[in-house]
């Protein structure tokens, strides 16, 4: 009798512990909504599309932060996805020892704390961007004179800004996308790939027409995981983006992201500004939540076949 009762109690204890996950998730939404009520009451949904941020006049708008977040994320993914896919493609077929060592090396990229990326970005990347990369892009290649995309590449540069932040984010999200793509490629049944080689496909044709098509949902899931990482990254971006609350004009201009704005302004904010920061937090929460849901939707179907090697 006693034993049965302890079993009961233990099971309830476990259930309650597991419930914490759900309660916390719910708690994030409730808490951030409650704390940002006065912002939504004052500005309504106009908060999302207004671009002034004037703590003195108590006027706040989220657009510059949202645009900055989206721009850095897009640059990061444009750089990281092809690199991650190519690296995974090569390492899956490489000799086991080589592939093992290099895979671990890439995984280590994810273990380095983001504040160290930030410091490296500030003291190493920014000077290099300012003295070498950006002058090359502007003065030698004259990219800003190009039609259409030239509009988004500025003439003036100082090393800080969206572009630099995007590059550092790309390095940071690369291991996450890589880890999932590696599993997706491994999950393709060998018989499919062998058949493709058998009819005379090259490695690249096999990869793009067979492996990519077979694992497209897993690939999308991996991209969404990378997207979620890039969107919420705070410290590395904070160090190199320049932290200007204006609308960015081009990819070399200083800007801000939602996460950087939160970390940068929270200490000195009060009343309405603090509420506006919570509203920004809510926007970020909604964005990452929907991205994570999308990632899980795509990864769910493949998770059984990929095994549980994803951490």
């Amino acid at each position: 009798m006693f034993a049965l009762r302890t079993d009961r109690i233990f099971q309830w204890l476990c259930l309650i512990s597991a419930m914490i996950a759900g309660l916390l998730m719910l708690g994030f939404f409730v808490q951030l909504s409650l704390s940002s009520v006065s912002t939504w009451r004052q500005f309504g949904l106009g908060f999302l599309v207004s671009n002034d941020w004037d703590p003195v006049a108590n006027r706040f708008g989220a657009l510059p932060s949202i645009v900055g977040t989206l721009c850095t994320t897009v640059i990061a993914l444009l750089l990281a996805i092809p690199l991650a896919f190519a690296a995974a493609l090569y390492l899956v077929d490489a000799p086991p020892l080589l592939s093992n060592i290099l895979s671990h090396a890439i995984d280590l990229l994810a273990a380095i704390p983001s504040v160290i990326y930030g410091m490296w970005g500030l003291f190493v990347m920014v000077p290099i961007m300012q003295k070498h990369v950006q002058p090359f892009m502007v003065d030698v290649l004259r990219l800003h004179r190009l039609p259409v995309i030239g509009r988004y590449i500025g003439e003036y540069y100082n090393g800080f800004g969206i572009f630099t932040a995007g590059i550092i984010l790309a390095i940071m999200v690369l291991p996450y996308i890589y880890a999932i793509l590696r599993d997706v490629i491994k999950m393709t049944p060998p018989v499919l790939r062998e058949a493709a080689y058998g009819v005379g496909c090259t490695r690249w044709e096999t990869a793009k027409d067979i492996v990519l098509r077979y694992g497209i949902r897993g690939v999308l899931g991996g991209i969404f995981i990378g997207l979620g990482r890039a969107l919420g990254e705070t410290m590395a971006v904070l160090f190199v983006i320049g932290n200007l609350m204006d609308m960015p004009e081009d990819i070399f201009s200083g800007a801000t992201t939602i996460a950087a704005t939160l970390a940068n302004n929270f200490a000195e904010a009060d009343c309405l500004q603090r509420s506006a920061l919570f509203a920004l937090g809510l926007v970020l929460l909604l964005m990452s939540f929907s991205i994570q849901v999308a990632a899980q939707y795509y990864l769910h179907a493949t998770s059984a076949r990929r095994g549980e090697s994803r951490s």
């Binding site: 998730m25 808490q31 919420g232 990254e233 996460a259 919570f278 937090g281 991205i291 994570q292």
Partner: peptide, 22 residues
């Protein structure tokens, strides 16, 4: 619960900072 734990693993840490602050 499994779903919320997995989603939570991808939440930006800055949001968790805001939450605990409150």
């Amino acid at each position: 619960l499994r779903f919320s734990a997995t989603v939570m693993m991808g939440m930006p840490s800055v949001i968790i900072g805001l939450f605990v602050y409150m």
